[in-house]
């Protein structure tokens, strides 16, 4: 039985163009990673987003060398994911994960 957890996803700084030009998404994420049988973590979420939510084939605009590309900040519940354990953070129901592409214009 495949249970899911509700997670809020937001893309900003231009990343939304890779996801149907939509900033906010509510997804039902499988509660465990079928390849490892471990609880779903942010690493699994990123892979899941590429396979299930990304409508644009330019995956390298989002993921490079197995993690988010340089210049993208990942925020878990409004904190830099480096404060939360990065890919290893295990998602809880209702968590919000924001992907921010850095801007350079001025």
């Amino acid at each position: 039985m495949a249970s899911t957890i509700p997670v809020k996803i937001e893309f900003t700084g231009g990343l939304e163009i890779l996801f149907s030009h939509q900033r906010s998404h509510k997804i039902a994420l499988p509660s465990s990673d079928p390849s490892t049988n471990q609880p779903a973590n942010v690493g699994f979420l990123i892979d899941w987003l590429c396979k299930n939510l990304m409508k644009d084939p330019r995956e390298d605009m989002f993921v490079l060398e197995g993690t988010v590309r340089p210049g993208i900040l990942v925020l878990i519940n409004d904190a830099d994911w480096e404060l939360e354990g990065q890919e290893a953070y295990e998602l809880q129901a209702g968590d919000e994960v924001v992907f921010v592409s850095t801007l350079h214009g001025g």
Binding site: S101, H104, G105
Partner: peptide
């Protein structure tokens, strides 16, 4: 510390290319 590696050069858009709303900047 926040951005140890620069973004890929082709992912960087300028205001001339991407556009900019005056009050935002």
């Amino acid at each position: 510390c926040v951005f140890p590696r620069p973004p890929p050069a082709d992912s960087v858009l300028s205001c001339g290319e991407g556009g900019i709303l005056g009050p935002v900047v």
